[in-house]
């Protein structure tokens, strides 16, 4: 698998660190119920098909990336900077 970093271009999978589903972009607000924290940290849709997850360009520009890809075919559909993804967006 190769991922095209918006800053560095197409790079080998080895350069990237996988963090997890884009649930991590939806951090509960202060005072949120414990159930919201459980959903944020642990519960996952875990789709077989298109998913969106966060990767870190560890051996490149050190940017956090929001990658849209297919978990069944390993096809990468789009890559954006996580900082440009709307906070709280699904």
């Amino acid at each position: 698998m190769r991922i095209t970093c918006p800053l560095c271009g197409e790079r080998d999978r080895r350069e990237f660190y996988y963090y997890g589903a884009d649930d991590y972009l939806r951090r509960p607000g202060e005072g949120a119920a414990p159930a919201a924290w459980d959903a944020y940290l642990h519960l996952r849709d875990n789709p077989a098909g298109v998913t969106r997850d966060l990767w870190y360009h560890d051996m490149g520009c050190a940017a956090w990336l929001l990658v849209e890809r297919n978990t069944v075919t390993h096809e990468v559909l789009s890559v954006r900077l996580a900082s440009e993804a709307e906070e709280g967006a699904a």
Binding site: A39, L43, R44, D45, N46, A48
Partner: peptide, 15 residues
Amino acid sequence: GQVAAMAGMRLPVES
């Protein structure tokens, strides 16, 4: 994950 979703559940599981 898929089968639990049929019962409306999200699991602490990632495949």
